[in-house]
Amino acid sequence: MRINFVLNGEPRRVECDPDRRVVDLLREELGLTGVKEACGAGECGACTVLVDGQARLSCLMLAAQLEGRELTTIEGLAAAGQTLDPLPASFVETGAVQCGFCTPGMVLSARALLERAPAPSRREIRQGLSGNLCRCTGYQKIIDAVELAAARGRGDEPWPR
């Protein structure tokens, strides 16, 4: 089946089985291994992608569903926003990255949250990231990172060099 969609800002036409999971299409065919898989059942958020700006689980979406959609993966985060996204660097600065396997999904959930709520409280950040499991950090530095990126996004904090 031929599927047309916009991937990280670029129109794409791919040929694939309609029942191929989106996570497999992205990782195996399109080389976007920043999309992780850690449960395959919608319980961990590692495979989070943005579909028309909304955080969704690519392990529970089939390729056919991509038709006509705009998909953003971690690799395309900067491209989609035209400018450099402050989230990845903020994650690094606050120490929010440890093993890094949850990080891409976490960053994308944070991006979706900041689109809806540019100045979230820590509680709102926790809610916004509650579908993304992290086993390394205890979450605190991730919350710090999103707070920092939100302030930078609003222009309240300087960006790093």
């Binding site: 919608g42 958020g45 989070t48 909304q54 955080a55 969704r56 689980l57 529970l60 979406m61 959930s109 979706a112 949250l113 809610q127 916004g128 509650s130 579908g131 993304n132």
Partner: peptide, 9 residues
């Protein structure tokens, strides 16, 4: 219910 992603889907 679920998580933000699950509520979006």
């Amino acid at each position: 219910l679920g998580s933000p992603q699950v509520r979006n889907m």
